[in-house]
Design a binder for these strands. Sequence first.
DNA 1: CTAGACCTTGCCACCGGCGTCAAGGCAACC
DNA 2: GGTTGCCTTGACGCCGGTGGCAAGGTCTAG
Lengths: 130, 130
Amino acid sequence: MLIGELAQRAGTSTRALRYYETHGLIRAARSANGYRVYDEAELPVVREIRALLAVGFGLDDIRPFVACLRAGNASGHVCPDSVAVLRRKLAEVDAGIDRLHAVRRELRDQLAHAITNREETCSRLRRTAR
Amino acid sequence: MLIGELAQRAGTSTRALRYYETHGLIRAARSANGYRVYDEAELPVVREIRALLAVGFGLDDIRPFVACLRAGNASGHVCPDSVAVLRRKLAEVDAGIDRLHAVRRELRDQLAHAITNREETCSRLRRTAR
DNA sequence: CTAGACCTTGCCACCGGCGTCAAGGCAACC
DNA sequence: GGTTGCCTTGACGCCGGTGGCAAGGTCTAG
């Protein structure tokens, strides 16, 4: 399988595949003319990468999942390193949610305050506009 | 007031202040030797910029708030344009929260699934490790 | 006079996951 | 042999808010 076919079957671009390779996530043999030749087993690896990227993982986070898949597991999630990353990401997401809630609260307060004070203060703006 | 003093009083760097200036957010007169000279009124403007940046606004979003402050309002939030930005940001934050909740759900499922299947699949990894 | 503490403009680096050329080689078909 | 369509490496762009450095001007205290 050449890079174009793998890209198409995995729903990504050849550019992305080369990028994953330079970062040690996928492997390719080379044919006589220098073309990358992929084993069928790379397809689930690429799909795993894409799925994890879509969830918000970085390439470094994804590495243990790939290693887990290569070790013969049906899922890349079942190995200790993967689980550790999953736990960490879950904590990060929780922190992100908390942060966004804090931001949301502040935005709501500011918005409420702005609307309450709109009448008295905007008269000044209207004078300026004239 | 020179740029160093303004930076210190606003809790930021001279580099940031020059950046804000190139993006039309703050203003400075020039002294005979070419130094930027800031009016006292720039201090609350810079503070507003910093506060909004900290909440996650981009410089473009901040512009209407600055204009509102310059129009003489005690708060930069009370003008229609600012309110529109606040509303938009609030919607964006809500969307972000929803997205993170979806990610969180998926992570929890994957984590649960990984732990459930750990025993049967990790034996294979242990064999590989030897 | 000199050291050092300001100030000036300008440009490169960063982060991350690519997109998008550029310039070229190789394969297959008409 | 020319066109088309694959492939190769390499390098720049992006986004946004800085940090940091270079090379220089300016002001002040000792």
